[in-house]
Computed example of a mutant assay.
Amino acid sequence: MTSNHSPAVATGTADFTDAARVAGLLDRYLIALDDEELDDAWARSLFTDEAVVAFPMSRHEGLAGLAEYHHASIAAFAQTQHLGSPAVVSVEGDRAVFRANVLTTHVHHPGGDRPPLFRAGTLASGEAHRTPAGWRMSELSFRIVFTEGEPPKPA
């Protein structure tokens, strides 16, 4: 996974436009998680066919099944909110790397013995590539910085 991201000096309008499009991929990803609009069209609009999405507790490789993977993860909670900082994006030709801070709040389903909320501060990083359909993420990973509360219990 991509781990070291530093901003590039933009040399023209195209660089800024490409960086904004790449940053928008992460924004759209986070919003869709909270809106639970996770289907194959969503996955194709954000990821390459061979994409890798890695969380500290699990990972998924490939576009096939990616929407279902996310839907199953989100279903563990009654509600979620994902807040992302502006992404720092470095574009070099048809490849870009990015990094952003993400603060997540997960509301547990009612009942049970856990506190109602589980929060996590994470660093999101990844790589995107220009494809015939536009920019798509090929790698997206999250590294936990802190947690508060209890995560869901394993099934």
Rank of each mutant, 00 (worst) to 15 (best):
R119M: 13
A100E: 08
V145H: 06
E50I: 09
F118P: 02
L25T: 02
P86S: 15
V52G: 00
T105P: 00
L83R: 00
A133S: 14
A72Y: 00
D94L: 14
V107Q: 02
F16N: 09
L103Q: 03
L103S: 01
H129L: 10
V97A: 09
S3K: 15
A87F: 12
A51R: 06
V145P: 03
T122R: 05
E148Q: 15
M137D: 05
A133Y: 11
T105K: 02
I144H: 07
V53M: 12
V102H: 01
E127K: 03
T105D: 03
L103G: 03
S138L: 12
E148S: 12
F142W: 12
A54L: 11
D49Q: 15
S45E: 15
A51K: 02
R136V: 03
L26I: 03
G62V: 07
A20K: 11
F142D: 05
V9M: 15
E139M: 08
A10H: 11
F47P: 02
F55G: 13
G24A: 09
A124F: 11
L38N: 01
H108I: 06
A10I: 10
A43P: 02
L30C: 00
T11W: 11
A14P: 06
D27L: 05
S141G: 12
G24W: 00
A14L: 07
V22M: 03
R119L: 14
P152D: 06
T17Y: 07
S45Q: 06
T131D: 09
S3W: 11
A19I: 10
V102C: 02
V89C: 06
H109M: 04
S138H: 14
A51G: 00
P86L: 10
P154K: 01
V53C: 11
V52R: 13
F118V: 03
S90M: 12
H82A: 04
A23Y: 08
G12S: 06
L30I: 01
A155L: 15
V9D: 15
T48V: 04
L123P: 01
V52E: 11
A96T: 09
L63R: 01
A8W: 15
R114E: 03
H108Y: 00
V9C: 14
E61H: 12
E127L: 14
R143H: 12
A128C: 13
F118T: 04
A32I: 03
M1G: 13
G93P: 07
R114Y: 00
R21D: 15
F77K: 01
E36T: 02
G84F: 01
I144M: 05
T122E: 10
Y69T: 03
R21V: 06
T105C: 04
D35M: 14
S6V: 14
N101Y: 15
L30W: 00
V52K: 04
D49R: 13
A78G: 05
S85C: 01
D40K: 05
G121P: 06
Q81W: 08
P116H: 11
T13E: 04
T48Q: 05
S58C: 10
E92I: 10
E61D: 15
G24P: 04
A78R: 07
W42I: 07
E139R: 12
F146K: 07
L66W: 05
A41G: 10
